[in-house]
Design a binder for these strands. Structure first.
Lengths: 327, 327
DNA sequence: CTGAAAGCGCTTACAG
DNA sequence: CTGAAAGCGCTTACAG
């Protein structure tokens, strides 16, 4: 391995001088040339870790998500990595696998590895607060003493209700799943309920439980069947807390022989697309994933540079058509 | 930040002694206890980079893929990270964004950061060979002096042809897209053609060009329309080099009013599922992604430990039904 | 078994 | 402007 010392002796200068040209500090044109030539000739590559030992900056950010199999998370990490790259930061990928212990492990590791910041989605509040000195920006989780970037979940619920009602639905159902720790999906339901109340449209809620190990499809099937009479579903508009859940519901509606969107309109949440690029998988409330990633990265960079940042950033959502709503 | 020095003075021993208990070397029970207590009390976290400076191991592997938006790559990285974690290695995520320059940047960075190994999918052969001292395992790309893990693409093509023919198709079409640098999609076509020849079934090939910026849907539409007469398509079985392309083709078939699978059967390649977990998006040749990730990680670890590894690992594929084939 | 010391590859005051 | 030296947080021979 060629080090700064090799470059120095090859160029006939001191290591300090090499360091200076490497970091753009002023040296004589003559020495600058000699060093650059030696760097080129020897194919020198700076050891960033050695530098970090002295400067205390690693230019690395740990990105913690439950997994990147879930399209929403994959999409988020896609934009985060892209953005961190623009700032010259490296992405250290951590999948907690929905497992609190792995979450803790990665949080500790992030500190051990002296990453400059932590970004992502994690549920663990206690370990997170221990992060102490290291900047943390959470997405969709507003924990104590952490900066948060999220989208407008309450308004998402309102939008969903508004669209269903405007498009003719008169008896609504909200189905949620996932950890109750994530208050965000609850806000979606709150916004939905609030809009229904305002428009004086009846609205039921079904909690389909945790979805870490897949959706409770039988529970959903059973619930829907109980609410049918004469082959017709009592509800004519459904909003689900995520697109994944929405697709599971769509399957059950088909299984029950219910036409979507003719008999029942369905709106999901997240705005996921076919293969992450094509058509929307169903009508949905789309989150501004790219903008969220940008804001999160921007915030963590600000924190690293000890610049002021907003504690809470809420980005707007929008309704997108995906064939499960009428008109 | 609490360092090994703080622990040493707190425990009343030398730093070397602290280092020894940290690394599981033998010290007296008495000292071991004192050090462990101090570590606990001070909340000491080892600085892995400082250690790496001395040991020359960072326990970090760079994973380079075009992007993680594409479900196949997301899935691959999902399993790779999971597996590297098992071995105690960290994942440094690099998305080349299908850009040769970014590819080079990351390859250089991987060396600068002194990662222990490089894993992934990259097209750049020249820069890769410069990696020189650092272990490299490629997936789906068999480059000179690099270890490769892939799935049996030729057999995938054979399987696709066999399934189409067994299920009644008699006039076949293979549609490919993507970089010609990736010889793998070509092998799929080769296997397909070989099986057709053997079964004496006619087989056409359509090269739909590069797909980095989306599929050439108009080209596909035009080609299919040219091969129609009396509202019927001349082909009754289509195999595409990827599932993404398969879905694009499916759209065009629908647009032309052609029934799938009644009139035309369609088989893709990769075996992608709804939201990466649910039903297959179309009938397909499924790659053993988890096994590929395992093998790739295993190989890179072997290389790091300077243990012998197979230069080429080819894993078996299988046909999966996804509603675009009959029976 | 343990401590003092050298050294990993860098950066950064500090003299000159 | 430049060189020699100290030091970042560790590990590892080397004496004792």
């Amino acid at each position: 391995m060629v080090t700064i010392k090799d470059v120095a002796s090859d160029a006939g200068v001191a290591v300090g001088t090499v360091s200076k040209v490497l970091n753009g500090h002023y040296v004589s044109a003559e020495n600058k040339r000699k060093v650059e030539e030696s760097v080129e000739r020897l194919g020198y590559q700076m050891n960033y870790y050695a530098r970090g030992l002295k400067t205390q900056y690693t230019y690395t950010v740990a990105v913690i998500v439950p997994d990147i199999l879930t399209p929403f998370f994959a999409c988020l990490v896609y934009y985060i990595e892209k953005e961190l790259y623009r700032y010259g930061y490296r992405t250290f990928l951590c999948q907690s696998m929905h497992d609190a212990e792995k979450d803790v492990y990665y949080l500790q590791l992030a500190r051990q590895n002296k990453v400059d910041g932590i970004l992502g989605i994690t549920f663990n509040t206690t370990e997170l607060s221990k992060a102490g000195d290291i900047p943390v920006v959470m997405i969709d989780r507003h924990l104590e003493n952490s900066i948060c970037v999220t989208s407008d979940n309450f308004n998402g619920g309102e939008l969903a209700a508004g669209q269903l009602i405007d498009r003719g639905s008169r008896n609504l159902l909200f189905i949620r799943s996932g950890s109750l720790l994530s208050s965000e999906t609850l806000k979606r339901g709150d916004g939905f309920a609030a809009a229904c109340r305002e428009r004086k449209i009846p609205c039921q809620v079904l909690d389909s439980g945790d979805d870490a190990g897949g959706y409770n499809v039988e529970g959903i099937y059973g619930y829907l069947r109980e609410h049918m009479s004469g082959g017709k579903l009592e509800f004519d508009g459904i909003y689900t807390s995520t697109d994944g859940l929405g697709l599971a519901v769509l399957d059950q509606l088909r299984r029950l022989g219910i036409q979507v969107p003719q008999e029942v309109q369905l709106i999901g949440h997240d705005g996921m697309r076919q293969m992450n690029r094509g058509a929307y998988l169903l009508s949905s409330i789309a989150q501004p994933i790219e903008a969220m990633a940008r804001a999160a990265v921007e915030n963590v960079i600000h924190l690293i540079r000890k610049e002021p940042v907003e504690e809470l950033t809420i980005l707007p959502v929008k309704f997108v058509e995906g064939g499960t709503t009428r008109e």
